[in-house]
């Protein structure tokens, strides 16, 4: 081993330590608990517990709400990114606004303020009554959770999408218009396909935390809407059933992995296509 690679190994050590101590070992512990019962004997019953009606219902609710949340985030973030591009605001300034400023306020406080806005006599209903609209019962519902999740996770969607929208060169869009493309054609035939990697990573970055959230659903669901995250939280903290909590966590992890594999697959298809093209070219040159 030469000195440069020795140095690299040395520099990588803290990172490796971090991964082992705080990711690998906890996951192994999770596996251990998920596959054993209280006596330490091997069992699959905690994994199978996901098929209990109450768990299936929560899982389905989680998938549904995070799906809605992801779609809403996408529907907000993409047009917003296009607007920001056409406004020609400095990119650095924009990124600061998207990423840093939301961090200035504590996460719990942000969600609590939504409690106040959405509650029965909250700001929203007062506004509605001023406009003589019927009051809405949004507090402690799935809708409230979705609102909170969209509010909280939107930057994760916005960031990669905004970046990929900004990376498209102006003259590519001009070329499309020059060839006869109207605004909608430019967006759907040129921008969206070019921004696919950004869109995919945005979807992943919102869907995964949305699927596992328990804090937002705790605070905005008022205990009435149980997501899979809440069930797991309860198993660990209330009923102290570490085995069941681990089992359900593992199932959830599988869901996340499937989602990520799917998005990797989409990106890889694109890469492979390019690689194939390159190979053809090289063959021709030979």
């Amino acid at each position: 081993m030469n000195r440069a690679s020795q140095k690299r190994t040395l520099l990588a050590f803290p990172y490796i330590f971090w991964i082992i101590a705080f990711t690998l070992i906890p996951v192994l512990i999770l596996f251990w608990y998920a596959f054993t019962d209280a006596e330490g004997a091997f069992t699959l019953k905690y994994l199978a517990a996901v098929f209990q009606k109450v768990h299936l219902k929560s899982l389905w609710m989680s998938v549904r709400l995070s799906f809605v949340c992801t779609v809403l985030c996408l529907l907000i973030a993409y047009p917003l990114s296009l607007c920001m591009r056409s406004l020609k605001i400095s990119r650095k300034w924009m990124l600061t606004t998207i990423v840093i400023i939301p961090m200035w306020m504590n996460f719990v406080l942000r969600i609590m303020s939504w409690q106040l806005i959405l509650s029965k006599n909250g700001i929203l209903n007062r506004l509605f009554s001023m406009l003589s609209l019927p009051p809405q019962n949004l507090a402690n519902s799935g809708a409230a959770i979705v609102i909170g999740m969209v509010y909280d996770f939107l930057p994760f969607m916005l960031l990669p999408i905004y970046n990929s929208v900004m990376d498209v060169e102006e003259d590519v869009l001009e070329a499309a218009r020059d060839l006869g493309a109207g605004t909608l054609t430019v967006i759907f035939k040129i921008l969206v396909p070019l921004n696919r990697p950004g869109i995919i990573s945005g979807i992943t970055m919102v869907f995964v935390p949305a699927l596992t959230t328990f804090a937002i659903s705790d605070m905005l669901g008022g205990g009435k809407v149980m997501l899979i995250g809440n069930i797991i939280e309860q198993e660990f903290l209330n009923t102290m059933n570490t085995h069941l909590g681990s089992g359900l966590s593992l199932i959830l992890m599988v869901f996340i992995l499937i989602g990520m594999l799917f998005s990797f697959r989409l990106e890889r298809d694109q890469e492979e296509y390019k690689a194939k093209s390159t190979a053809e070219k090289e063959k021709e040159l030979c």
Binding site: E169, D171, V172, A175, L194
Partner: peptide, 9 residues
């Protein structure tokens, strides 16, 4: 265009 501006996708 000067920079070709082909659609890379």
């Amino acid at each position: 265009f000067q920079k070709y501006s082909l659609f890379t996708h």
